[in-house]
């Protein structure tokens, strides 16, 4: 059984399309990532799948239930962590958790094994009001509350936005453990480096899916030649690279990446020569390892 099936779902706001004929499937027990910037339509897709928003067109099923007809069943069977912190700020950590367990007709004890790893970190603060927690702690509590009824599918809308790299890494470790408990996870993020933690990803922009693949295959199918380039002056380097024909170039960490258009071939020495002719020194050109970010940029061009 598929955890999610979305077929041509569309949504408009005041005549402006937010989601346009989006189709994808999530397999049971996998971590599926929706990767894209603000305004790409990620939140609308989450809200449609969790039955909080009606699609204008298309259909979708979560765990074989229809998102329009079977909304009650879906709400009982999924966990949803919205992008905006939505727990009760004036209830304590423990009260929030107890509240969500009760609403779903269960108890904290019954599914404690699911949240144990996360909750032990929160326990010292269990009598603190949720509104007084730090960003990282709020995020952990929200995850516990979304898990306490042992959902079949977990929807996480940008759980790591604005969180520092260390906390982000810890969060993804938690998700991997949940996956082992056979919970299917749909997660969105604007951070490209997190895409590699997913089993499969959909790259999304302006309401449409650009590509769906495993992170490995996405990178493998990049297709273009990709060079990494360095020189003495980064500002001038990027300026000069713009004039290399049949290429697209952009800053990439300590290097600039130069992507050669399809059906063209180029030699590293050609690029080096061009840069040196334009007065750059300490020029270094080599083949670059393709990342998901390169794939995304390529699809945007």
């Amino acid at each position: 059984m598929k955890a999610v099936i979305a077929e041509n779902i569309s949504k408009q706001y005041d005549g402006k399309p937010a989601v346009e004929k989006v189709s994808f499937e999530v397999n049971e027990g996998e971590i599926f990532g929706l990767i894209g910037p603000d305004g790409a339509g990620k939140t609308s897709i989450f809200r449609i799948l969790t039955t909080l928003l009606l699609p204008d067109g298309g259909s979708a099923q979560v765990h074989h239930w229809d998102v329009v007809k079977d909304w009650r069943a879906i709400r009982n069977a999924v966990g949803y962590m919205p992008g905006k912190f939505s727990l009760y700020q004036d209830l304590t950590v423990e009260e929030n958790l107890h509240f969500f367990a009760t609403v779903f007709n269960t108890t904290i004890q019954e599914n404690y094994h699911l949240i144990e790893d996360i909750y032990v970190q929160l326990e010292p603060f269990k009598n603190r009001r949720a509104g007084k927690l730090s960003g990282g702690m709020k995020q952990k509590l929200a995850l516990c509350c979304a898990l306490i009824h042992k959902p079949k599918v977990l929807f996480l809308d940008e759980p790591t936005t604005g969180v520092d790299p260390v906390s982000r890494r810890e969060f993804w470790e938690m998700l991997k453990k949940l996956k082992q408990q056979n919970i299917s996870i749909v997660v969105s993020t604007p951070y490209m480096d997190e895409a590699s933690m997913c089993d499969r990803i959909a790259l999304i922009q302006s309401g449409s899916i650009l590509s769906i693949d495993t992170p490995q295959d996405l990178v493998k199918n990049y297709g273009n030649q990709l060079f990494r380039v360095k020189a003495n002056d980064r500002y001038r380097l990027l300026e000069v690279l713009k004039s290399v024909p049949s290429t697209k170039s952009y800053a990439f960490g300590e290097y600039a990446h130069v992507s050669v258009e399809k059906d063209h071939q180029m030699d590293a020495s050609e690029i080096a020569q061009h840069l040196q002719q334009n007065g750059l020194t300490e020029v270094e050109v080599g083949e670059a390892e393709v990342t998901i970010e390169d794939c995304f940029i390529n699809l945007l061009h």
């Binding site: 936005t161 995304f296 940029i297 945007l300 061009h301």
Partner: peptide, 19 residues
């Protein structure tokens, strides 16, 4: 925060230019 990788780089080009 929150923009696509291409837009983020265009922003950094403005930063380089200012510097």
């Amino acid at each position: 925060g929150g923009v696509d990788p291409l837009t983020r780089r265009q922003f950094w080009e403005l930063i380089y230019e200012a510097a």
